[in-house]
Simulated assay, not measured.
Amino acid sequence: MSHPKVSICIPTYKQPDFFRRALQSVFVQSFDDYEVIITDDSPDESVEHVVKEFQPNIKLKYYRNKERKGSPENWNEAIRLASGEYIKILHHDDWFPDKNSLIEFVKMLDENPNADFAFCSSLVCGPDQKVKYLHLPTEKQLSKLRSSSNYLFPKNIVGAPSATIYRSKLNKRFDIRLKWVVDIDFYISVLKDNKNFIFCSNPLVCTTDGAPHQVTSECQNDKNIELFEWFYLYDKIKKYPIIDFRNFVFFWNLLYKYKVRSVGEIKELGIQFPPQILEAIVQLQKILCTFR
């Protein structure tokens, strides 16, 4: 049995109108050597009803989770079920803006066998589909990323997972302990194994920003989530005991945002981090706060 070139993985959770738009953008693609893997984490049948609108379609493979997996394990489930040479994640509220989007994604890897990972710029849109801005890393940022995958900490210049495509042979999964910085962690892991990546400046995908149903809306400004995940990721990528000025300022601002005044408050969140660095950040924060 032959496998498709691309597995388009669409992890879903309710929001049938967004999901319908995503599917519509897939089925008009000029490149057709693909399968669509849908993993449904919904508590109702709203997603399933949309799937039925597009059936019968041999490219469409729908799976309803028996128990809710949550994000990002629902993403992982779609990846596990994929059989394509390439993995193309498309979140259910994102979509391809052009019929040639998918073929351009595929070309990036087909024409660059030394790279396992590719990404594009993206049109970031509001829930009303109006473009808010173009997510486009600068040449300087791309150069720094080529030098070190850790450059993604703390700024995600890649963008949303929908802006990426990678070879399934990497056998990578998203860290289920994370929600807020899960994409950054994934990209760093992929690029540590092979620093070669391909970038397309054309926006091959539209991503949704600011919708109330999104995980980002749930995590943003949540002290426990943000503090835990940023310190957890920093520990995971093994950058300490040396902390550069850019990251020092980042952590100082993070602690200032949440009015954290002591190392003990951070430790209460179960965060493992070199105490000397934490103490230095906290002390600097106390000094600088007098000038604000």
Rank of each mutant, 00 (worst) to 15 (best):
S2Y: 03
H3N: 14
V6K: 07
P11W: 04
Y13V: 02
D17A: 11
F18S: 13
R20A: 14
R21A: 01
R21W: 02
L23D: 08
V28C: 08
F31K: 06
F31P: 06
Y34R: 03
V36K: 10
H49A: 14
V50S: 00
E53F: 07
P56Q: 07
P56C: 11
P56E: 12
L60P: 03
Y62I: 14
R64I: 05
N65P: 01
S71T: 11
N74T: 06
E77K: 14
E77S: 14
A78G: 05
A78L: 06
I79C: 04
R80T: 09
A82W: 07
S83L: 06
E85N: 13
Y86Q: 04
I87Y: 09
I89N: 03
L90S: 03
L90F: 02
D94L: 07
F96H: 04
P97R: 12
D98S: 14
N100S: 14
N100W: 03
S101Y: 04
L102T: 11
V106I: 08
V106L: 00
V106M: 05
K107M: 10
E111C: 12
N112H: 15
P113S: 15
N114Q: 12
F117I: 04
A118C: 10
L123T: 10
L123D: 14
V124A: 03
C125E: 11
Y133P: 02
Y133M: 05
L136T: 08
L136A: 12
L136V: 07
E139G: 11
K140A: 13
L142W: 05
K144W: 01
R146F: 11
N150W: 04
F153D: 00
P154W: 03
P154Y: 05
K155Q: 14
K155P: 00
I157N: 05
V158D: 06
S162P: 01
S162Q: 02
I165W: 01
Y166K: 05
N171G: 15
N171D: 15
R173I: 13
R173N: 12
V181Y: 05
D183I: 02
I184M: 15
I188D: 01
L191Y: 01
K192Y: 04
D193L: 10
F199R: 01
F199A: 01
L204W: 09
V205A: 05
V205M: 07
T207C: 15
T207F: 00
T208W: 02
D209V: 02
G210C: 06
G210V: 02
V215N: 06
T216D: 01
C219T: 14
I225C: 04
E226S: 02
Y232T: 12
L233G: 00
L233V: 11
I237E: 01
K239A: 10
P241T: 11
D244L: 09
V249P: 00
F250Q: 02
F250S: 01
N253A: 03
L255I: 09
Y256F: 14
Y258G: 11
R261W: 13
G264P: 02
E265H: 07
E268H: 13
F273S: 09
F273H: 04
I277Q: 07
L278V: 09
I281P: 07
Q283A: 12
L284K: 15
K286Y: 06
L288I: 05
T290C: 12
R292K: 14
